[in-house]
Nucleic acid binder design. Structure first.
Lengths: 208, 208
DNA sequence: GTTAATAAATAAACACCGTTCACTATCTTT
DNA sequence: AAAGATAGTGAACGGTGTTTATTTATTAAC
């Protein structure tokens, strides 16, 4: 009775093919080109077929958001793991984050600059409607930063600030530079320089 | 021969009516609802008519971007004008900027978070294709900030930093908090608190 | 006052979008 | 070989921005 297995395997394969096409279109042609008909054309199936594998266009986008978050974690995790000193670790995280945004602007845009619904959905794997899963990639990446801030406070390297909000502030600073650069390079031509200023001035200001 | 004049006047009137409808739809129903057919329905004309007054939907959006920049300047200018001390002035500008983003998120989004093309076009009033007009509202608002930073450096209140990049960094910091809050409130619930941390830690770090 | 010219507005169409659904063709089981 | 299940299709629906031939109304000329 290997028929059912083969069928299942083939179904999974086509699902992956769809996702691969979506990924490729998204990266090569941008978020706007990611249409059902474009995907269908690329995989040489009719548009309707995609709906046998994904509930909607949004469901595909959500999957890409998930992958995007995983990419980000894959970049930030290692960068953070190496460094013992919490302040230096914040620097390492910040640098990795900034480089990620510069290297893969489309993914960065999809994750942090598109409509929240994608992120919400990506944050809720298959659970209820409430978007707060602390073990998700996004939270995980942020957690590493918050942890570093908390450590810096504990060790007396930072003034006694609220770790959560301060981490949010550090993140916001870099996100501001990156997102402005992505939406309008003219406004923010020297992202790296600006990101460095944001980070270094904040670190200096937070120092005990 | 007052006919031509009246015609011209009526043409201008309908143009304004279209813009007023667009403004209203944009504010009340959001950017996504701003469609040609929706505008046409509101002003009780056929969609095609709008094209006799605006080149495209984009042209209408560009006009709204222009108005948005003007609103921003109208908020920031006065806030900056009152304060003599450059550092306090930066605080005042930052506060006004943050409140603008919180009070009018749709406009903020349109200006700083949509595709750059709108901003580019809005920055070039009617000139060539190159987007750099230093006398435009956007540049004007930023100029006030850059000026304050330069003054702070001159008076020895700040370390000898590059005024332009530092101003960009201060801006980026606030923009990061605001834009994250707008796209995904869950990620940035306490905008004001975070904006304050960003601003104050940066100011502390920049102090001479 | 009637006719010709001009300008404004429209309705219908084009090409795209996401999505749905009746239907076909193929494969599997009986 | 017949019956049943299932993957895939193609056409359609209602939506988008935009274009164009056509109608309608106003103005100008005779």
């Amino acid at each position: 009775m290997g028929v059912a297995e083969r069928r299942e395997r083939q179904k999974a394969e086509l699902r992956d093919t769809i996702l691969a096409a979506a990924r490729r279109i998204f990266i090569e042609e941008g978020a706007e080109a990611l249409t059902m008909r474009r995907i269908a054309e690329m995989i040489e199936y009719s548009p309707g077929t995609i709906y046998l594998y994904f509930e909607s266009r949004e469901a595909i986008a959500i999957q890409l958001v998930r992958e995007g978050f995983e990419k980000l974690v894959a970049v930030i995790g290692p960068a953070a793991a190496v460094v013992a000193d919490p302040v230096e670790r914040i620097r390492a995280i910040g640098a990795a984050y900034t480089e990620f945004g510069i290297a893969d602007p489309e993914t960065y845009k999809l994750i942090f600059m598109e409509d929240a619904k994608y992120v919400y959905a990506a944050m809720t794997p298959s659970a209820g409607p409430e978007p707060c899963a602390t073990d998700e990639p996004g939270e995980q990446a942020f957690g590493v930063l918050a942890q570093a801030v908390a450590e810096a406070v504990e060790r007396g390297l930072f003034r006694p600030v609220e770790a959560q909000r301060t981490a949010e502030a550090l993140w916001a600073g870099l996100h501001g530079a990156l997102s402005l650069h992505i939406t309008c390079p003219v406004m923010m031509p020297e992202v790296r320089a600006v990101a460095t200023i944001v980070q270094e001035s904040m670190l200096a200001g937070l120092r005990a």
